[in-house]
Every structure is written in structure tokens, then in C-alpha cells.
């Protein structure tokens, strides 16, 4: 399969766990096994939006028990005879090949996936700083020759990009190093907080410069975080920033 494959370097590999759980978007071609009226194709595929049950295929690397996955949208872009061009936005861990097989069964004619390309993995899309292996080779060698850092910026994105769609909490300089040492996020350390955070949400903890400090799990809602004067607001799950980046301002 071709398409968007974010590759994290060195310290940035720590954000991969957030990317693996991020939603994906694909375009593909479904081949129908019999002629079906266009109207029926559109109607039946529409029913596969929302929460669906899916049993992972035989060759899958996970346990083959029925599981629930969310299809955010499944749009038909074009129909050419038995070939149906579609775009799907889905939760991580959705098997598109299986989804298409199930759409074929629901249509009564059977179908299989002819082609598939991933156009989004979380915040990474094919139309924003998406590079080929050839680009990487060329640009990295050009950087070695010129030592012009702008060349690196042309194809390397900061790891914070991976956290773009996580709810965010921005913390004061004085709270950063404690979190780097594994301390949980407490109310006085918070400067800014995004709306709609609920307990148990995975959140990104960032500095006021926008640097990633840690991934955490909220134990309070946005409203509670805004009101609280003490207490743990989020548990630190994965520290992303090396200790000592900010001064130690705790005992």
C-alpha cells in the first residue's frame, strides 16, 4: 500500500503511541462483483458510517474477536461501472479491505478492494510537507553539503505536529521539569487549557513555547481545571521532554 507514513526520529519515537491511536483517512477503489444501481451503492455504503462491528481478517496480527470501530465518513467520489472510488475516514485499527468486503455482502453482490492509498494518519496528510524517499536522500545530502538548516526544515516537522489533534494543556515554566521527572500535572502549573476535555481523555502537555512535555490522561474536565487551585488534573503517562531542559523549580 502507498501513502502517508509518518516516521519519527530519535526522541520523537516517543510520540508514536499517540499516532498509532490516531484516526486515518484512505482513498480506494472498490470493485463490485455484479452490476448494482448507483443509488443503491450510495445508500448502502451510507449505512456503514458511525459505529460498526468488525472481525479482523485471518492474516491480522490481533485477536480475531468482533470489535467496534468508528467510521467517521464513507463517501463515494465516483462510480465507473463496477469500480467505485471512495474516501473513508476511520478510527485507528479499522480494516478497510474487510470493510469493503462487508459492504459487498450488504449489497448482495460481493466486492473486493482493488486499490488503496492512505491520505492521512492523524495530523499528517498527503498535502502538507509529504516527501518521498528520494526527497529525503536528496535534501539530507544537500544539508550535509551546505549546513543550511532551512533545508532540514523543508522536510522535517517538529514532533509536536503529531499531537495536533489531542486536547492540550499549556503549563508554566515552573511546572515543566517536575513533569519531566514523572510528576503528575497539578492545578497551579496550568496556564492555558483547551475546551471540551473530559476525564480519561488522552491529553498533550506543552510548554508556553509549544514544546511537548508529556502525554497524559486527564482526571478532570476543562471546567474543573479552570476552577481548581490545587490537586492533580492529569496523570503523566509518557514523558517526551528530556529532564533538565527547563530549570528545576521544585523541591
Amino acid at each position: 500500500m502507498t501513502g502517508v507514513l509518518p516516521i519519527a526520529l530519535e526522541e520523537a519515537t516517543k510520540v508514536i503511541q499517540a499516532l498509532l491511536k490516531a484516526g486515518k483517512e484512505y482513498v480506494g477503489v472498490m470493485r463490485l462483483h455484479e452490476d448494482v444501481p448507483e443509488r443503491k451503492v450510495i445508500e448502502v455504503t451510507g449505512e456503514f458510517q458511525g459505529k460498526i462491528y468488525q472481525r479482523p481478517p485471518f492474516r491480522a496480527s490481533v485477536k480475531r474477536s468482533l470489535r467496534v470501530r468508528t467510521i467517521y465518513y464513507l463517501e463515494i467520489l465516483e462510480i465507473d461501472g463496477r469500480d467505485v472510488l471512495f474516501k473513508v475516514g476511520c478510527e485507528a485499527g479499522t480494516y478497510i479491505r474487510k470493510l469493503i468486503h462487508d459492504v459487498g455482502k450488504a449489497l448482495g453482490c460481493g466486492a473486493h478492494m482493488q486499490e488503496l492509498r492512505r491520505i492521512r494518519a492523524g495530523p499528517f496528510t498527503e498535502d502538507f510537507v509529504n516527501v518521498t524517499l528520494h526527497d529525503v536522500l536528496y535534501l539530507y545530502n544537500k544539508w550535509l553539503e551546505t549546513k543550511d538548516i532551512r533545508i532540514l526544515r523543508r522536510f522535517i516537522m517538529p514532533m509536536e505536529k503529531a499531537l495536533e489533534f489531542l486536547p492540550k494543556v499549556f503549563v508554566k515554566d515552573s511546572a515543566v521539569d517536575a513533569i519531566c521527572h514523572g510528576a503528575h500535572l497539578t492545578a497551579p502549573g496550568i496556564a492555558y487549557v483547551e475546551s471540551d476535555i473530559k476525564p480519561r481523555d488522552v491529553i498533550a502537555i506543552l510548554t508556553l513555547k509549544g514544546e511537548a512535555v508529556a502525554l497524559g490522561t486527564a482526571v478532570a474536565s476543562t471546567e474543573e481545571m479552570l476552577k481548581a487551585t490545587y490537586g492533580i488534573m492529569a496523570k503523566t503517562e509518557r514523558v517526551l521532554m528530556p529532564r533538565g531542559t527547563y530549570p528545576k523549580m521544585w523541591k
Binding site: 509518518p6 516516521i7 526520529l9 510537507v129 516527501v131 532540514l152 514532533m159 505536529k161
Partner: peptide, 22 residues
């Protein structure tokens, strides 16, 4: 202390970097 993510110098730009590969 620290840098804005888009202003990280070398080698941090690589150390904390992600490539969006096709």
C-alpha cells in the same frame, strides 16, 4: 530555556523530528 518547536537548532531539529513520508 527550550525553543519554539519550529525554531529548534541542529541537532535537536532531527532529534525531535518527524518525517511525513509518502
Amino acid at each position: 530555556y527550550g525553543y519554539k518547536p519550529e525554531e529548534r537548532p541542529y541537532p535537536d531539529i532531527i532529534k525531535f523530528g518527524i518525517i511525513n513520508l509518502d
